[in-house]
């Protein structure tokens, strides 16, 4: 009985497994194979050695991290207090949510173009700043580091916020009341009860935000200076693939990207398991 029930369940899993293999495992394995070979198919570590010895390419790791890490911390760090204050719902929540979802639905390119005109030297943001005497000359918000970071904020914050809001509003209000009845102030309740319970959500949204920011491409090209200060790792990979037509070198850079992302995700997950031991032992309910 048991065996047949199990194999029945396995049959149901087959479509999902095929899907995963075709969509993720195969391209990844093929990319790994490409990265470890030369153009004529011989095994070689040359693609990796070249990346780590080419100063201009190696520097992209640092460039990308210096964009991705701060904006991920900002996005998640802002999302935590916002989600906390909105956990029981506030007036106008729908409108706020609507404006947060708009940048997600519009897509990176449209948001970037919007930013180019609104935040450009003659855009209304600069006109406003000058009219309010907050700035003398137009402030440069685009075609630099700041432009990329702002666009990643517009794109990443809504994800982080909506995800964390789901987490916090799922925490029973009775837990807060219980903590209060035991003598905890609001701040103590936040740090001793709500924050630890938000940790899994914080970890997940940090990972997603980081991966999104680390693999940034369109906004780094459109809003940054892709030749220098915002030459992120994805641009390096793109140039090898479509400017120099060396897919082997491009694959190697992609593999390095994946490795760095995995490394950061593992650090976050270790932090999470340190902070939230409860989840590892949740058996039921």
């Amino acid at each position: 009985m048991r065996g047949s029930a199990r194999s029945g369940a396995f049959i149901l899993l087959i479509p999902a497994i095929v899907f995963i293999v075709l969509l993720f495992v195969y391209p990844f394995a093929y990319g790994l194979y490409l990265s470890l070979t030369t153009a004529d198919g011989a095994f070689s570590l040359g693609n990796y050695i070249r990346f780590f010895t080419d100063g201009r390419d190696l520097r992209t790791i640092w460039t990308t991290l210096s964009i991705a890490v701060p904006i991920t911390f900002i996005n998640v760090g802002l999302a935590v207090p916002f989600a906390y204050y909105m956990r029981r719902g506030v007036r106008g929540e729908r409108i706020i949510t609507f404006f947060l979802i708009v940048p997600i639905t519009l897509g990176t390119v449209l948001v970037s173009e919007g930013m180019l005109s609104y935040m450009g030297p003659n855009g209304w943001l600069n006109q406003l700043l000058i009219a309010l005497h907050l700035a003398k000359d137009p402030v440069r918000f685009t075609h630099n580091y700041l432009g990329v970071v702002i666009s990643l904020g517009l794109q990443g914050f809504p994800y982080a916020f909506l995800m964390l809001l789901g987490y916090v509003s799922g925490i029973s209000p009775d837990l807060e009341k219980a903590s209060q009845m035991l003598g905890a102030s609001r701040i103590q309740t936040f740090w001793k009860v709500l924050f630890p319970l938000m940790v899994p959500g914080i970890a997940i949204s940090f990972c997603l935000n980081f991966v999104m920011a680390f693999s940034v491409f369109p906004s780094a090209v459109l809003l940054g200076q892709p030749s220098g200060p915002t030459r992120v790792i994805a641009i390096a990979s793109y140039q090898w693939a479509f400017e120099k037509f060396n897919f082997n070198a491009a694959s190697a850079i992609s593999m390095i990207m994946a490795a760095i992302e995995l490394l950061v995700i593992s650090i976050v997950l270790v932090w999470r398991s340190r902070m939230y031991r409860g989840v590892s032992v949740v058996g039921k309910g």
Partner: peptide, 21 residues
């Protein structure tokens, strides 16, 4: 006087134990 200063104790209907502790 806020609840945390009243020195009352309360047992909730669903117990409200802290799941992470």
């Amino acid at each position: 006087v806020p609840p945390e200063k009243r020195e009352f104790g309360m047992v909730f209907q669903n117990y409200a134990l802290f799941p992470h502790l």
